[in-house]
Design a protein around this nucleic acid. Structure first.
Length: 440
DNA sequence: AGCACA
């Protein structure tokens, strides 16, 4: 409070570096011209031009610090300024010690997109949401996210340039659908260019990077402990404090999701005390109460973004509830208190009426198995008009690959196989237990 | 005219 931050963004006198920063360059400037400019003073080992918002800055790196000092000293006392194509260029020591030549953006299309997420809450967009959004256009191999001067960005890798191109054309400049967020998150716009990358290097599954082609990749501790980065925004405010109660939203609910189904899925991580289901915004949500926060964190980490049923149906989006102890007034097919003995007998059968209460999403899908896809859910339904109605092609593999849980090895839920998320239970169901073909 | 995408 007492001290005003008045530190300038740059210092008048930079400490020496063998890297020089040049500005006021003509935009046509080439790396060759930079080499020519520096050559009289020493060995130019690296250059980078077209830097900065106006693309009129550049870097020259000398082999030796003394060579950089020689160039700066010469022009500091010279009557003739440094020039490129007759234009005066200004020199100073760079505030970095070496040039990193990352060829990151490409003019030509490629299979990797550079996505900038704009908006006040851009940083809160999870990698799972990005994955969901881009998966509408084809199998997403890998995603990395990072924060730079341009803001919050992601690299999204597709199989080929055609798929990447269709995603770019459809999504560039559009907002991420609101229904993918908790309600307190503001609008986020996608700006998309091509990256020059062709294959991203993802070493860990974490909250910042994912490799969907390699479910066996080690999981970074930052993604497991669930604390810290996950729940704290840039401004340091606690955004979503952990809780022993989870709020699950069910997306793409082609099948009815029953209380029993939720109980089975969430019981894989610890005893479920209470469940309450309710309709919200035309979708189904459920509150799931565990005895402790740790269990809830483990369940959230493992289940977030995954589907209850094969084929991308009934995808779970999980946040921490503000509740700590649910008040279950009556045990029925929408809410239950499992901690009270004997009440399990009270109303053991989910009723047919319960199914009617669930809004049907399109015609009943076929029981799904194997590689055949039923009509793909319309990923564009939530987007503004103008987006192509549906991805042209959905290769057979992706929907299954998308289901790879990235469970930490030690926390593998007992009933869950390594491959995909199965319904725990007697028959390893891939269709809802309550689903009755031909029945209303 | 003032510093680059992990």
């Amino acid at each position: 409070m007492a001290s005003v931050s008045s530190q300038p963004q740059f210092r008048l006198t930079q400490p020496p570096s063998k890297v020089l920063h040049l500005r006021n360059l003509p935009w046509e400037c080439t790396e060759e011209e930079l080499v020519e400019l520096g050559k009289p003073f020493g060995k130019v080992v690296n250059t980078k031009c077209n830097v900065g918002a106006n693309r009129n800055q550049a870097f020259i790196e000398f082999a030796d610090l003394n060579q950089a000092i020689a160039m700066i000293s010469y022009y500091a006392s010279s009557s003739e300024p440094a020039q490129v194509r007759g234009k005066t260029v200004y020199l100073q020591y760079s505030n970095r010690q070496e040039i990193v030549n990352n060829k990151t953006t490409a003019d030509v299309s490629g299979n990797v997109l550079l996505v900038t997420i704009e908006g006040a809450d851009a940083r809160l967009v999870s990698i799972d949401v990005l994955h969901l959004v881009f998966s509408a256009f084809g199998f997403v191999h890998k995603i990395t996210t990072f924060e730079k001067t341009a803001g919050f960005q992601a690299l999204v890798q597709f199989s080929d340039a055609e798929t990447a191109s269709s995603a770019k054309n459809a999504l560039d400049g559009r907002n991420i659908p609101r229904y993918l967020f908790p309600e307190h998150i503001g609008p986020c716009t996608l700006r998309i260019t091509y990256s020059a990358h062709t294959d991203l290097s993802v070493k860990f599954q974490s909250h910042r990077s994912r490799d969907y082609t390699n479910p066996n990749l080690p999981v970074a501790s930052s993604a497991i402990d669930g604390g810290g980065l996950f729940s704290v925004g840039l401004d340091g405010k606690k955004l979503e404090p952990e809780s022993n109660v989870l709020l699950a939203s069910i997306e793409n609910m082609q099948y009815a999701v029953t209380l029993d189904a939720l109980h089975m899925v969430f019981s894989a991580f610890g005893p479920v005390q209470k469940i309450a289901m309710f309709d919200k915004n035309g979708g189904l949500q459920a509150l799931i109460q565990y005895p402790d926060v740790q269990t809830a964190v483990a369940a959230k980490e493992a289940l977030e973004g995954h589907c209850i049923y094969d084929g991308g149906f009934c995808k779970l989006h999980i946040t921490y509830s503000r509740h700590n102890d649910l008040s279950i007034k009556v045990n029925n097919d929408r809410s239950r208190d499992y901690t009270i003995p004997n009440t399990a007998m009270l109303n053991p059968q989910p009723s047919i009426q319960g199914q009617q209460a669930v809004p049907a999403v399109g015609p009943p899908a076929h029981p799904y198995s194997g590689t055949q896809h039923p009509a793909m859910p319309q990923p564009s339904a939530g987007w503004a008009a103008g987006v192509p109605a549906a991805p042209h092609s959905m290769p057979a593999g992706p929907a299954q690959m998308n289901n790879h849980p990235y469970l930490p090895p030690g926390s593998m839920a007992p009933q869950m196989g390594p491959g995909m998320m199965q319904m725990p239970g007697p028959s390893g169901l891939s269709m809802p237990p309550s689903y009755r073909p031909g029945q209303m």
